[in-house]
């Protein structure tokens, strides 16, 4: 398979309606942290991107949003695919990215290396896709805050205790901070900076 064929195979079949449906799912995920939703548009992602990551990036990224990918993905089919289908520039500096993709448990920049926004414009922050093996059955944390009636249990497989400590520290600098979207297969769950995180260790 040539590079071009691999690229041209994989975009949205119907960009207007596929991205509209996908956006509503992502909006719901970030509005109700820890609630797992499924993205349904048909899409074959490039190697290295979970289908949910690829669908959400194609929905949100374009020439205005620099994307940070792990170096191996940036140099490979995923980087080419993203540039071709979304027109998104790739950046090698995490703090310059509007979107970033990391794999839970793998080597990656710290959450604090990405852009937290600034005090007058907290919206100028990075949104990070955290690719997991599953969004269930992992180390459970308890979430609370906007979007959550009471509290909600969330247990993606992949994030390690250090990650949850960093995520709690990310929340501590609210309203600054990064927002996270966890993906596994076609499933997605949100963790905005507004969410309080209680780990098993501290409870």
């Amino acid at each position: 398979m040539t590079g071009n064929a691999e690229i041209l195979q994989a975009g949205f079949a119907d960009p207007v309606f596929d991205s509209q449906r996908a956006f509503r799912t992502v909006l719901g995920a970030l509005s109700e942290p820890g609630l797992v939703a499924e993205l349904d548009p048909a899409l074959t992602p490039p190697p290295g991107l979970e289908p949910a990551t690829a669908i959400a990036l194609l929905t949100l990224a374009d020439y205005e949003t620099p994307v940070w990918l792990p170096p191996a993905l940036a140099a490979g089919a995923a980087g080419r695919w993203l540039r071709f289908h979304a027109g998104a520039p790739l950046t090698t500096t995490p703090a310059d990215s509007a979107y970033a993709v990391i794999t839970a448990g793998a080597e990656a920049p710290e959450l604090f290396d990405f852009h937290p926004g600034d005090d007058q414009f907290p919206d100028r922050s990075t949104t990070i896709f955290i690719q997991c093996t599953s969004l269930e059955g992992g180390l459970p944390v308890i979430l609370a805050g906007p979007g959550i009636p009471g509290s909600r249990r969330f247990a993606p497989q992949g994030p390690v205790p250090e990650f949850w400590r960093a995520a709690a520290a990310n929340h501590a600098r609210y309203p600054l901070g990064v927002d996270c979207l966890f993906t596994a297969g076609r499933r997605i769950a949100g963790l905005p900076r507004s969410t309080r995180i209680e780990t098993g260790e501290t409870r």
Partner: peptide, 12 residues
Amino acid sequence: IRRALLKAVAVP
């Protein structure tokens, strides 16, 4: 607009 909406939701 969708990107702005996600930021809006993240910082109520």
